[in-house]
Design a protein around this nucleic acid. Structure first.
Lengths: 182, 182
DNA sequence: CATGTCATGTAATCCGTTACATGATTAC
DNA sequence: GTAATCATGTAACGGATTACATGACATG
C-alpha cells in the first residue's frame, strides 16, 4: 500500500488536488514509484473515506483540493518510522542476464554494452535534472535531492558493472574456470 | 510477462518440474524476480497450452517434467534480444526518503543509518553466497554470478549513499542552502 | 467557435500474494 | 504409523495498467 502513503506524503507538504499531485508524481516520485491517473484518483477517494485526508475546498471543473488530517499525519509518521520497507527489487534487465548463455557470446556482449549505454544516459539525464532544479524550496525537494543522488550513483554503478560484465563474457563462454577480476 | 520468460529461461537449461523450478527460483532469481508457488504452476500450464514447453515425462506423485520446445527457445531469444526491458524500479525504502522532512532530523538520520546497515548486511550476505557457491556448473550459474556481482555493487553503493545522506540531513534542516558535497 | 488544458471518474484485465486443499511417497 | 517432503492445484483479493468516458473552462 505504498501509493497510499506516497499521496499522503505529498499532501503533508500542503493542500493539492489529484490533478496537482499527478503532475508532482510525474516529475519526482515517478522514478521510484510510478502511478497512473486512475490509481491516484481512486486512492484519494479511499484516503478521504478513511479520514486521513479531507476535501478542503472545491474549485471550478469539479476540482477538489485535499488537505491532510491529523490522523493522516500520524499514519504517515507511523509508516516512515515503524513499518519495515518492502525490499522487493524486481529488475527485468538483470533477469535477462541469467539467460544470456542461450543467445551466444556476441549477443550477450551486445546486450551488456547496451545496458551500459542506457545507464550512462540515465546518469546524464539525472545530472541535468540536478543542475536545472531549485532544490531549496521545500523539505520534499530537499530530501528528493538526496533520492536523486542515490539514482545517479545507481546509474553510474550499473553502467560500470555492465562494461565489466561484458569483458567477462569471453571468460565464461570458453569455460576456463574464471576467477573473475573485479 | 517476465515470470513467463523466467520459467522459459530456466527450462532452457534442461527439463524440470514446477517443484524443481521453484527451488531454483528461491536460491537465484528470487532476488531479482520473486515468484510464488501458485504463480509458477499457473504459468507453466499456460506455457504448455501455448506450446512453448511440453510435458516430457510424468513421475510419481503427479510430478510433471517440462521440456522447452523449439518455439519456446525462439520466444526466449526474441525476448532477450528484441524486447526492450521494462525499466520500472519501485523502491519503497527510497520512497520514504522523500518524506523524511515530516519526521524531524533525528528520525531522518536514524532512518538513513538503518538503510546503511541493511545494505551492508546485504552486501555481506551476497559475499558469503559468492564464496560458498560453485559458479562453473552451467551457463545459468556463470551468468548468475555476474548478476550477483551487480547486486553486491548495488548494496555497497546504497550503503555508502545512505551514510552520506545521513550527514546531509543537518544541512537540509537548518535551511542553509546546501551545495551538498558528494 | 474550436482546440487545448483542467479535472475526475469507471471498467476490464493482468499480475502477484495469501490461504486453502489434496494427496502420494519416503524415512524413521 | 506418522511426520516430513514431494508435488500440484484452486480461490479470493488487491494493486497496477490500459482504455474509455465525460465535461468545464480558457485561449486564440
Amino acid at each position: 500500500m505504498s501509493l497510499r502513503h506516497a499521496a499522503l506524503g505529498l499532501l503533508a507538504d500542503g493542500p493539492a488536488s489529484g490533478y496537482d499531485l499527478l503532475k508532482i508524481f510525474d516529475r519526482s516520485l515517478a522514478f521510484i514509484w510510478p502511478a497512473t491517473q486512475s490509481q491516484l484518483y481512486g486512492e484519494l477517494n479511499r484516503l478521504a473515506d478513511d479520514g486521513l485526508i479531507e476535501v478542503s475546498s472545491e474549485g471550478p471543473r469539479g476540482r477538489k483540493d485535499y488537505t491532510i488530517t491529523e490522523q493522516g499525519r500520524a499514519e504517515l509518521e507511523r509508516w516512515i518510522t515503524d513499518v519495515e520497507p518492502d525490499r522487493i527489487r524486481r529488475n527485468e534487465a538483470l533477469l535477462r542476464v541469467f539467460f544470456l548463455g542461450t543467445v551466444g557470446p556476441e549477443h550477450a556482449k551486445a546486450y551488456l554494452e547496451r545496458e551500459a549505454t542506457v545507464h550512462e544516459n540515465l546518469e546524464a539525464l539525472l545530472q541535468t535534472v540536478e543542475r536545472d532544479t531549485d532544490w531549496d524550496t521545500s523539505d520534499f525537494d530537499r530530501y528528493g535531492h538526496l533520492v536523486l543522488e542515490s539514482g545517479r550513483r545507481y546509474a553510474h554503478g550499473q553502467a560500470q558493472w555492465a562494461h565489466w560484465a561484458a569483458t567477462q563474457v569471453d571468460n565464461l563462454e570458453t569455460n576456463e574456470t574464471p576467477a573473475p577480476t573485479r
